[in-house]
C-alpha cells in the first residue's frame, strides 16, 4: 500500500470547462503529477479549470502550493482555478492556511462549472 497507489487524476469536460477529479492522498510525492496536469490544461489554452477534491483523503502544504501556483497561473490570463471541496478535513486545511480567501470553493463540480 502506498500513497501513490490510491492517488489519481482523471479529467473530463463539463459544459466546455475542464474538470480534474483528484483521488487519494496528495502529498509531496504525488503533488507533482497534479501540477503537470494543471500545466497541461493551461497549455491547451483553457482559461478556467475545476479541481474536484471530493475524493481526496489527504492534502499537505505541498499540494496547497501546487494549487496556489495553479490559481496564479490561470488568473494571470484572466481565468480561474475553482475548487470543489466537500471533506471537512480538507476544508480545515484551507481555513487554517488562510487559503479560503484565495480560492473560489464550491460544493459540487456542477456548481463550479456553472459559476
Amino acid at each position: 500500500m502506498s500513497s501513490e497507489g490510491n492517488f489519481g487524476v482523471s479529467d473530463s469536460v463539463q459544459s466546455g470547462v475542464p474538470v480534474l477529479l483528484v483521488t487519494g492522498e496528495v502529498d509531496v510525492s504525488t503533488a507533482p503529477e497534479l501540477r503537470e496536469r494543471l500545466v497541461a490544461v493551461a497549455e491547451k489554452g483553457d482559461r478556467v479549470v475545476v479541481v474536484d477534491l471530493t475524493n481526496v483523503s489527504f492534502v499537505d502544504s505541498t499540494a496547497l502550493g501546487v494549487l496556489v501556483s495553479g490559481v496564479k497561473r490561470f488568473r494571470n490570463v484572466g481565468g480561474d482555478l475553482r475548487l470543489v471541496v466537500t471533506q471537512p478535513h480538507i476544508s480545515k486545511v484551507l481555513e487554517i492556511t488562510g487559503l479560503t480567501d484565495v480560492f473560489a470553493i464550491y460544493s459540487t463540480s456542477a456548481e463550479a462549472v456553472g459559476a
Binding site: 500500500m1 502506498s2 500513497s3 501513490e4 492522498e25 502529498d27 509531496v28 510525492s29 489527504f58
Partner: peptide
C-alpha cells in the same frame, strides 16, 4: 524519501 512519508502518516 518523500514517497515513503505515507508510512510515517
Amino acid at each position: 524519501k518523500p514517497e515513503l512519508l505515507f508510512l510515517a502518516r
